[in-house]
Nucleic acid binder design. Structure first.
Lengths: 142, 142
DNA sequence: GTTTATGCAAATTCTTTGCAATACT
DNA sequence: AGTATTGCAAAGAATTTGCATAAAC
């Protein structure tokens, strides 16, 4: 069974080539991808504008979420059912950027501990970026 | 004694009007500022291009640092001597963005607790963005 | 006087919008 | 058939670059 197809079904989106291929890329990579990365793969097979609209649709439907990075360029990653439901989205997981390979991934099972804020501050959402060495790159260094 | 002047001295940068005024803005605000915010104040007194170059220089010299934001638009804030030295920069502090007033500030004294990462991951730098209600806005809501 | 920074013009890149043609259900 | 999505053209932002002028040291 095709994962990409079932994602589109779940969100009542039409199965177009661009959407399927974009999803396939997200599924195949375990790290966050920028618009530019996708362009390199999908353009000129698809129009750049279509890619903009595809990402916008996926964001709105909650299929992908924005991943913050030190570079400033936004990246995107698939939402996992672990922390996103149809109507509610929680991205209180950790994003890890490896300074060696440059890849940013979601650490789905790493939980952000409670943080005591100054008087009067009320926290609602957390977005933690950790930079360092990922498991793959720390293996090679050894 | 002028703080802006001493910052420029420390980094061996010439005292130009644009640099001094830009620094004065950073010093006077306790929240992070985007390029666009600065433009509204400094253009057309100074050229937009000069502002780009000023920010670039400040970033390179470690006078300011990039603050992550959910919007994707990069914002900037002064580096404080608390966590930055001449050659090493640590921004392991918390950035708090208020969803009501929209301001993003650095919570210099809020510490990020130890986080246990999966096997093989080595953390070097932490960057936490918390969104919620700031002290000023939570006062008003009451 | 030498070096560095600025302003202007223009080139590039990034992103959005309108609309007719096409593909999906 | 009816609706949603695409591609193209073009507009509008955002960012960068080159170069002569001006300011700082």
């Amino acid at each position: 069974m095709n994962v990409a197809v079932s994602i589109l079904n779940k969100h009542q989106l039409r199965h177009t080539a661009c959407r399927l291929e974009t999803l396939a890329i997200f599924i195949s990579k375990n790290f966050a991808i920028s618009h530019n990365d996708l362009e390199k793969i999908l353009v000129p097979a698809f129009d750049r504008v279509t890619l903009y609209r595809t990402l916008k649709t996926f964001l709105e439907k909650g299929i992908i979420h924005k991943v913050l990075d030190d570079e400033g360029t936004p990246k995107y990653a698939l939402c996992s059912p672990h922390y996103c439901s149809m109507d509610e989205h929680h991205h209180n997981h950790v994003h890890f950027k490896c300074s060696t390979c440059g890849k940013t991934r979601c650490l789905d099972n790493t939980i952000i501990p409670k943080i005591s804020l100054p008087e009067g501050f009320v926290a609602k959402e957390f977005n933690l970026l950790i930079q360092g060495l990922c498991n793959a790159c720390s293996m090679e260094t050894r």
